[in-house]
Design a protein around this nucleic acid. Structure first.
Lengths: 135, 135
DNA sequence: TTTAATTGATGTTAAATTAGTATCAGTTAG
DNA sequence: CTAACTGATACTAATTTAACATCAATTAAA
């Protein structure tokens, strides 16, 4: 059971690299090399980060990516949401028979509690924190 | 991002059904029907539960499965371990460059903390608790 | 003693997700 | 100009998840 997929993982690492050097544009090629991330895969990942306004880019020679959103405010949750969607345990255990009424289902409370707890943990972990711990 | 796979989900539901009727043998066919679980899929799931000694079986006509381990002691974690392995975020972020020394890596502490927290939540949730909440 | 309903064991297939690749057009510094 | 870049998009490969199929052995009951 692996919680984070490669794209989430790579995105986090790319963001830490960019946050570390926040004043200049770094090309995908450089980032890929430094973090041993497959280049084309990283390209598509960067495009999603652009669309979600976590980074900004400059085209052309000596172009590349620069961090846009404050690393203190980039939560791991944000990145998970982009690449893996919402954190859910399962659609709903016992859906058919027991859980017809989702709002009153007592099980959902337990499940939601766990989901929220996990989300909360990921909220506490920001790019800035990772940056500090790794530099 | 879905934390529980179908087999974990189905196994939990099967166990709750068995725990509810712990004095008699219930066939896979019955359980499958009641919970709308694909029969053959459930069969293979039950065999894993047998091997992990959570249930016992009786062959032949009017045979089936009966819960073996005390439902109070069957944690959701146990079931996740059987079908999805250990709970891990990712092998290790920044493995190559930063995390050469796994023991001292400060990131690992964060990651481990989250993993443990989640495991802890799943430990609190037992078949017995689910049973109570659904009956 | 036959039969129908069951589990045990094992192999296969299908679907979905995850991971990674390829291509081409447009941009820009030098 | 041109080489190094991003934007956009389509494609392929690998892995995991979900499900199906078959046959032998067992057993309660007709």
């Amino acid at each position: 059971m692996k919680l984070l997929t490669k794209d989430t993982d790579y995105a986090i690492r790319a963001l830490v690299v960019l946050a570390k050097d926040s004043n200049k544009y770094l090309s995908a090629r450089i980032i890929a090399k430094e973090q041993k991330i497959p280049y084309q895969f990283l390209r598509t990942i960067m495009q999603k980060l652009i669309k979600n306004r976590l980074v900004e880019s400059k085209e052309g020679a000596s172009g590349g990516f620069k961090i846009k959103k404050d690393p203190k405010k980039i939560k791991i949750t944000d990145i998970i949401h982009i690449f893996q969607g919402n954190i859910t345990l399962t659609e709903c255990l016992f859906r058919k028979k027991i859980c017809q009424n989702r709002k009153t289902c007592p099980l959902r409370r337990e499940i939601k509690r766990i989901e929220w707890g996990l989300e909360d943990e990921f909220n506490k972990l920001t790019i800035n924190k990772l940056l500090k711990k790794t530099s």
